[in-house]
Design a protein around this nucleic acid. Structure first.
Lengths: 207, 207
DNA sequence: CGTATTTTTGACTATTTTCAAGGGATGTGG
DNA sequence: CCACATCCCTTGAAAATAGTCAAAAATACG
């Protein structure tokens, strides 16, 4: 979606930026001057609450975009989970493009509606699901997104990220994973590698 | 936003529809042929989980719109909380309008981005807030939206709706309200009337 | 006015968090 | 390449928060 802009005149070419693991792309409260799309690696968008609690809005994987805001400022902090490449486009350029080309406007709207759908699904998860259900849903979703439905894949985030995304503590995340391993639903190896051994059972747990 | 369409030719005039309390406007899974805006009253959009648990995505108050979907089907059931008037516009008409007029496209995008913002805020609430914090945030938000920040207002929904929106049980909702009353933060009268007696304290509870 | 529905309250239970400690992995400098 | 330090993950026990079940009280409705 962002890549279209290259062909347009008078609009700067989107810049590629590489980020090291843990590097911050932008912070909550900063002027939201750019919109980004992940090329490789992964990004988390998060928010720190007053008392130190953290919430992770979403993990962004290759092909997914983030950073588009209704207001002037970023409402989230964006950090790379692993070595990551993103392309950034000036927000003003995007606005110009959407004003000129209805097809681009439609594409931006569709992307935003998909984010909304994702957020809505996640609300159901956070509001009405148990720890086991949350973890099963998370693992299945990740398999889909990081590995195109392959059962073996590498999680780019650590336990604390998963916890802050699912509204749990790292201890609960760890305990549920251990339980899944014991029940033969998954296999956990070093380096964040996960193997979903029993997808139907995970789907059943997911509810 | 929807009202703009009346001036356009070849596009049907949006229809007004009145709903009785409890009446269903559309159900999850139905073809999403129309988009709606609340004129008066209030609407809830909800989803029933397999095992009977319910999640309420949002409450829609006058001026707010709902029912716009990325896919072909409604992902939520929409029901009137009170006697309600909505205007409905054919989705195909809206799509035609946005294709023709970049200003309308921008308005639709902005509305969708606001919904996304709302959903994101609600995710933080569901994921990282205690029952007391959830209730305080809910009451303050409602005061803002149903009564423009007035401290005395009528809640159009019942306890079970609040519970299913905040990821709590009706008993917990009731208990927290009772506690707020006892601590002098609010006053509860019949007919869903609420009086926020100590807004700063509620803000403090909200966190 | 009587009935049905909704809300409140109480006692008990379950799930998840908190606090605490130990074990593993990862990375860096010598 | 090893030793050390750091960070991360796991596990256990105790505590807290919210949920469940049950019944009474209040409210709404015909």
């Amino acid at each position: 979606m962002l890549a279209v802009s290259i062909s347009k005149s008078g609009i700067s070419v989107p810049r590629v930026r590489t980020l090291k693991k843990g590097e911050t792309l932008f912070e909550e409260g900063e002027a939201a001057a750019h919109v980004y799309q992940v090329v490789s690696g992964s990004v988390r968008t998060s928010k720190l609450l007053g008392d130190g609690r953290r919430h992770i809005d979403a993990f962004h994987l290759p092909g997914e975009s983030f950073g588009l805001e209704a207001g002037a400022k970023h409402r989230w902090t964006a950090e790379a989970l692993s070595p990551t490449g993103v392309i950034g486009m000036r927000r003003s350029d995007l606005e110009e493009l959407t004003a000129q080309d209805p097809a681009i406007a439609a594409a931006v709207l569709k992307t935003t509606m998909r984010s909304l759908q994702r957020a809505q699904d996640h609300m159901v998860l956070l509001g009405r699901r148990s720890a086991r259900e949350k973890m099963a849903a998370f693992l299945l979703d990740m398999a889909e997104r990081v590995a195109n439905g392959q059962r073996r894949f590498e999680l780019p985030m650590r336990r604390s990220d998963i916890a802050d995304h699912l509204g749990l503590t790292i201890e609960t995340v760890s305990r549920v994973l251990t339980q899944f391993v014991r029940n033969g639903l998954i296999h956990v190896a070093g380096g964040g590698w996960i193997n979903l051994r029993d997808v139907p059972a995970l789907r059943h747990v997911e509810g």
